[in-house]
Nucleic acid binder design. Sequence first.
RNA 1: GGACCUGUGGUGCAGCUCGGAGUGCACGCCGGCCUGUCAAGCCGGAGGUCGCGGGUUCAAAUCCCGUCAGGUCCGCCA
Length: 434
Amino acid sequence: MIERTSIAKLSEFAEQKVTICGWTEKIRDQKTVQFIVLRDETGSVQLVREKVEGDSVCSTISDLSTDSVVQVIGVVKIDPRVKLGGLEVQIEDVVVLSKADPIPINEETSLDKRLDWRFIDLRSSRNRLIFEVQTELERSYRTTWEEEGFIEIHSPKLMGAASESGAELFRVDYFDTSAYLAQSPQFYKQMAMAAGFGKVFEIGPVFRANPSFTSRHDTEFTSVDVELSWVDSHEDVMNFEQHLLSRMLKDISDKFKDEIQSMFGVDVVVPKLPFPRIKLADAIEIVERSGHKIERTDGDLDPEGERRIADYVLKEFGHQFVFLTDYPATVRPYYHMRHAEDQTLTKSFDLVWKGLEITTGAQREHRYDILVNQAIEKGLELPPLQFYLDFFRYGMPPHGGFGMGLTRVLMILLGLKNVREVTFLYRGPNRLTP
RNA sequence: GGACCUGUGGUGCAGCUCGGAGUGCACGCCGGCCUGUCAAGCCGGAGGUCGCGGGUUCAAAUCCCGUCAGGUCCGCCA
């Protein structure tokens, strides 16, 4: 490794000689003095060099271009004149490790064009923060799972048959046959229940072949999936999820509250428990009373309805989250358990955060005969599903779980308008590169 | 898949209604000036088949038709 001091730690090295490495953010080449603002992963610092005729270091600096990668040896000087951190490094030597061509994007560039140059776009401290927050989010989730005795699984992404959730599938060549890319780990996390794993989680990619042209969809995204055995109802699943989320928001708040406020202008609110619950039928009534006519006829809420119910919950309960429960069986897959007293309603829920759906969950139907009947009722062909249905023939505990769109959570958390902003490399109907 | 919107130097825009020489602004880039800058400042410069094709016209970035690319919302969904 190159022996270097990170820029964030420079204040500990006053009057000492250090080596620092990074990207040249600004080069201000004046007649008698030269300044460079250098950035590494930890921050930015000003470098200075007195300009002398015929000095080779000075001419190296004069030839530098913005965003070149350099290694600098110099002495750290505390200097209150410097607005950037009150210190600077007096340059003794500069080595250009990689000279940059003119940068094709800037802060004003539209998202789509920035995505073409994502590796440059990600250099900004704002974008770096997104992924630091994502890392903390996943770390927090893992801490909860570890405390609660969860087992991590990695389910296959190549499948022989659809894991039914309504979404379209990508088909890929698979030797002399075809395979599908998994749209969800649904079947496999349920298999883990049959295997007696008790509680499992997976953070992994899922693929949706829907030509969805919106700011909240992608064709490949990271899904956070959880499944729990021995639940009494979907209420147990919601209780676990609200615990997971509130803990995560507390951890994010402790670590990044101020940074998120200054970079994104968003206040990270640690939600109170329990999250409000509203039955979908009641939610629809509330939305329609607010003056929004729901055009769709299948009994589900539309996006405007989700925003309105979120407004209502914020006003009535002062809460950013709301569980919408008891979806009609018509808009839920066959493996969602139905209420014993009302077969038209499922023991399922969506979680809406600030008006956006981030989760679907349910208690699953674990009784083989009922499950098969519900599949038939939905008009599904049984033979391709048999491997899945077999999970339920040899002892399956009652269980439930949920799937959470990681990018949607991050987007809402940071107050951003598009999942592309929070996805390392976005994949959509019109984008497969870089 | 449906509706709507946008394509103008490297980037972001204005110009389009009401046709008149590629006109303008900001950022960036190149050169010069400037004894400490720090959103640096000042002076100068380069850089464009106005997405593409056709039509109307003496004349099209501007009007009409087509086409391609991208976006937003809806549907699908996390």
